[in-house]
């Protein structure tokens, strides 16, 4: 088991958001996590990456057999967890390529490897840039500064392709993308699918799942997984909306508190 989440409760600014998540992810699997706004999808993604102010109040998360919650953000990253941000951050004055190099070498250092020689690093970057159909000039621009929404998301996939994570978490990478950009992002993600790697796609819309076909689909509502199934569940959600799911969730919540 790559990732095992048991009865996870988490709060943001003292407000409970996750109220008992259970989820198991094996290597090679792609899981889609869907749900209406405010259901806790992004909170789950951020908790897994170790964001501050996201306080785990109970439950456990194990990643490759280790207690993930005890690890610092960068340790998680070095152990192969990658979060593609819903809102990628702008860092003025720091070039994209510099951040990539710093990240690659931070990880190599953690693994006890020497820094990647500049020539090899450049080769790697150039190859991956093609994958996401970015112009090379983007590498020399400040991280995400002045990028369009689509460019920012492609930049996230580029970073993922270069850092080669074990567990990739894509937080609403599809939202705000036009269909062409979505196809590019999906191509990038599909290229990275493999037996050693697991992915969690957090999304509001079914649309992305036409291009990245998940093995499992989970629906979150009110901070719980209220329904799990295969790809057909996503299609059902597309047809029926989230209303019936939320209703079920409320009934469950009532039963739990009652």
């Amino acid at each position: 088991m790559m990732l095992s989440i048991k009865n996870l409760h988490a709060s943001v600014d003292g407000k409970p958001i996750l109220r008992g998540i259970d989820l198991e992810v094996k290597a090679g699997e792609v899981h889609a996590i869907m749900g209406p706004n405010g259901s806790g999808k992004s909170t789950l993604a951020n908790v897994l990456a170790g964001r501050e102010n996201y306080e785990v109040t109970s439950g456990s998360v194990h990643y490759l057999g280790e207690n993930l919650l005890e690890l610092a953000t960068e340790e998680r990253a070095c152990k192969g967890i990658f979060l593609a941000f819903q809102y990628p951050v702008e860092i003025p004055g720091v070039s994209n390529i510099y951040l990539l190099k710093a990240a690659v070498n931070a990880r190599r250092k953690y693994q006890g490897l020497d820094e990647l020689p500049a020539v090899e690093f450049l080769k790697l970057v150039k190859e991956k840039v093609k994958l996401v159909e970015m112009k090379e000039e983007f590498l020399h621009r400040s991280v995400n500064e002045g990028f369009s929404g689509g460019e920012k998301k492609r930049n996230e996939i580029l970073q993922m392709a270069i850092l080669e994570p074990r567990l990739a978490i894509l937080d609403e990478t599809d939202s705000g993308l036009d269909i062409d950009a979505l196809k590019i992002v999906a191509k990038g993600v599909n290229t990275l699918r493999g037996p050693q790697r697991a992915m969690i796609l957090v999304t509001h819309y079914q649309r992305m799942l036409d291009y990245i076909v998940p093995d499992h689909v989970h629906v979150l509502a009110h901070g719980r997984v209220v329904k799990s199934g295969d790809k057909s569940l996503a299609l059902e959600l597309e047809e029926r909306g989230y209303g019936w799911i939320e209703q079920q969730a409320e009934e469950i919540a009532a039963a739990v508190t009652g």
């Binding site: 170790g50 960068e74 003025p92 720091v94 710093a102 990880r107």
Partner: peptide, 22 residues
């Protein structure tokens, strides 16, 4: 958080951001 999620230590992240600032 963004830099640390990419594997940089906190000091390195601060140094990177400050150098970008300058």
């Amino acid at each position: 958080f963004y830099c640390m999620q990419r594997g940089l230590s906190e000091e390195d992240a601060i140094s990177l951001i400050v150098n970008g600032f300058c």
